[in-house]
């Protein structure tokens, strides 16, 4: 149940087509609108991107410059910094979201009174516009009298600059304990971690809903059988829930990683709400997506932005392949 092909439920497929000789050729007419838009606005642009990435100048005045855009990107420290930040972002949000989403969904799946109400509430952050909620959170992180600092004050901790802080979180924590960590250990900036906190808050409900759907599909008799065999709660979770939920975990991790690599709206909004330049304090919230947008929108370098997008797409694609491999192997082990 772990390879991507399980997106197609074989069991429910239609009766064998060969029995009926007559094909409904008109079916292609039904498919036409969807496929036409997909091809014109999603597939062809992907190929068009390779041509644009070889162009210099503004959009209306392109000129061929060969591989210069790629060479410039690969030599730009900003690009590598942005890539590192993007990796921090993915590592700092996706696993937490999956673990927390599964945890909450599992709790909700117990016999809970008012489950429907929780479901509605947990999905709320995903419903609210990211631009609006990012503004609210930026105000929560306001260094002068913001809620976040009030909470720290209640706990007896020193106030922080949050979205304005370019120092790494590990460095800040180290300072709290009187240690001086070396620069390479300082981690993502507190500004960026504040953005990640928002991202976890926003995406959690989506994961909860999807995990709930996955849990609903697990046959309850399996749990009964496990209980009869004397398994405790953790063993049931570890040996029944997790393996059978692998396709869902796979689906969510693919979707979240592809999405996180391109996270933009809230990072951009929180930078502006904190009166920071695009990229945040000392560029510590600059992800590849933000870097690309900056090159396109502020610098008017469409070709360069596209070259960056292609490099990003290659990384995403490679990671997706690795995930397919990883889950394929995991699936086989679980099946044995």
């Amino acid at each position: 149940m772990s390879e991507p092909a399980t997106l197609v439920p074989h069991a429910q497929s239609a009766p064998p087509i060969r029995e009926r000789v007559k094909y409904d050729w008109i079916a292609y007419l039904y498919l036409l609108p969807a496929i036409l838009i997909l091809v014109v606005f999603h597939i062809l642009p992907a190929f068009y991107a390779f041509w644009i990435s070889t162009q210099g100048g503004r959009i209306r005045a392109f000129r061929f410059i060969g591989a210069d855009n790629y060479l410039n990107a690969l030599q730009a420290p900003e690009f590598w910094g942005a890539l590192l930040n993007t990796v921090w972002y993915v590592v700092g949000t996706v696993p937490i979201n999956i673990a927390l989403g599964l945890f909450i969904a599992y709790l909700l799946f117990q016999k809970i009174r008012g489950r429907g109400v929780y479901r509605v509430i947990y999905f709320m952050p995903h419903v609210i516009s990211a631009v609006a909620s990012a503004i609210v959170w930026a105000w929560v992180f306001n260094p002068t009298g913001g809620i976040a600092n009030r909470l720290l004050g209640l706990l007896g901790l020193p106030e922080q600059k949050w979205l304005l802080e370019s120092d790494g979180v590990f460095k800040l924590i180290g300072q709290g304990f009187g240690m001086d960590l070396p620069g390479w250990l300082s981690g993502p900036s507190l500004a960026f971690v504040s953005v990640m906190i928002f991202a976890v808050w926003q995406a959690l409900g989506f994961d909860v809903i999807i995990f709930l759907a996955g849990l609903t599909n697990i046959n309850a008799e399996l749990y009964e059988a496990g209980k009869i065999d004397g398994a405790n709660g953790w063993q049931l979770f570890r040996h029944i829930t997790i393996p059978l939920l692998m396709p869902t975990i796979f689906f969510i991790s693919i979707i979240s990683i592809i999405g996180s690599f391109q996270a933009f709206n809230h990072i951009y909004t929180m930078n502006i709400a904190a009166s920071q330049p695009l990229g945040g304090p000392l560029g510590t919230t600059r992800t590849v997506s933000i870097f690309m947008f900056d090159q396109l929108y502020s610098q008017q370098r469409a070709g360069y932005a596209t070259a960056i997008a292609i490099l990003l797409a290659l990384i995403i694609f490679a990671l997706t392949l690795v995930q397919f491999r990883f889950f394929e192997r995991g699936g086989q082990e679980n099946a044995q």
Binding site: A5, L7, V8, S13, I17, R20, K22, Y23, D24, W25, I26, A27, Y28, Y30, L31, A34, I35, L38, F41, H42, I43, L44, P45, A46, Y48, A49, I52, I59, I258, F261, Q262, S289, M292, L296, A302, A305, T306, A309, I310, L312, A313, I316, F317, T320
Partner: peptide, 30 residues
């Protein structure tokens, strides 16, 4: 409906989510 290669068409449609939106952003603007 009976159309040849139905599941293949569906898989191809699904596969398009692998194309990141950032990749197609600038070409679409152009």
């Amino acid at each position: 409906m009976n159309l040849p290669g139905r599941n293949l068409v569906f898989l191809l449609i699904l596969a398009t989510i692998m194309v990141p939106n950032d990749l197609t952003l600038v070409p679409k603007v152009v």
